[in-house]
Design a binder for these strands. Structure first.
Lengths: 156, 156
DNA sequence: AACCAATTGTAGCATTAGCTACATTTTAAT
DNA sequence: ATTAAAATGTAGCTAATGCTACAATTGGTT
């Protein structure tokens, strides 16, 4: 159940550090993974929404993830403390430079997985759904294999 | 981010129902998914450990998931309330009939993904890791495609 | 039988993410 | 300018999964 951040350069700590940790233990395994996936999903969604409607509001994200606006705003707080987004009360959400970078890396990996599934013959609808779940768990090595396969298929 | 239970027949509710829900709302999206993945990971691990060492103890699972025994025992409580395992204080863990069924379905899907990655040319080590993360997010449709690909590769 | 080590359980805390209900602010319409 | 609706925020709850520290049980050795 490994979690693969979309790249290695300029990596951010995607979760809060424990309040009282004497030795900086590699605690929080799965929990950290889920939190990081959420971070990626959110920056990716924000980038997409900004692209489509020029601004992204809490409401848009709530709709996008089918979740209450409260959940969104709490998650945004966390992302802000991670330096991924900038927020101002009652104002649209903006990605920081770091957030933008993470979003574009996430999107690239997302697209790679999606196009692979399509090349494999999966229907667009199913491919879209499965990609959402799979993308965070594909290693760089596997990602290269997926790209190679898609390339071959595209040519054939 | 869809979660796919490994089959449709004899499906179990893999999470606790909300304490006070008036209409049985489809609440808890991602949360439910994660909890269900955990259930599958655990029954699969229990089946595997029983296979290797004849019995499965809390300690074995703690080692397997690199997690404290406390976390394991709390999760086992949940699984017991779901009817997937049977526990007795200070005794080894046993799978119920339902648990066994879920475990074998999970294993089958797990193996399908793993063999696919191998057929694609991914190294065994990476394939093992990636499979852990991917398996819960592969739809039946995609699963069929993966099998077809592995078959073709196996023959060629 | 007594004892010690390994195993398991309990208590209590933190983090993340879900919710409803209610308060506040912005924005658009009249 | 007022007002009403839409958007956000806050308070406070639940569930799931991490943890440490300490208590209890089991089982094997002596």
């Amino acid at each position: 159940m490994a979690f693969y951040p979309p790249s290695q350069a300029g990596t951010v700590a995607l979760t809060a550090s424990p309040k009282t940790s004497q030795v900086s233990v590699p605690h929080r395994r799965t929990r950290r993974d889920h939190a990081s996936e959420t971070a990626e999903d959110y920056v990716e969604a924000i980038a997409q929404i900004v692209n489509e409607r020029s601004t992204c509001r809490v409401v848009d994200l709530a709709g996008h993830f089918a979740v209450s606006h409260v959940t969104v705003s709490r998650i945004l707080s966390r992302l802000e403390s991670l330096g991924l987004v900038e927020t101002q009360r009652y104002q649209p959400v903006k990605l920081t430079r770091q957030g933008l970078k993470l979003a574009s890396q996430s999107k690239e990996r997302h697209d790679t997985v999606y196009e692979f599934l399509i090349a494999l013959g999966v229907s667009p609808k199913t491919a879209a759904i499965d990609t959402e779940g799979i993308e965070h768990h594909v290693s760089p090595e596997t990602l290269r294999r997926l790209r190679a396969f898609t390339r071959r298929r595209g040519q054939a």
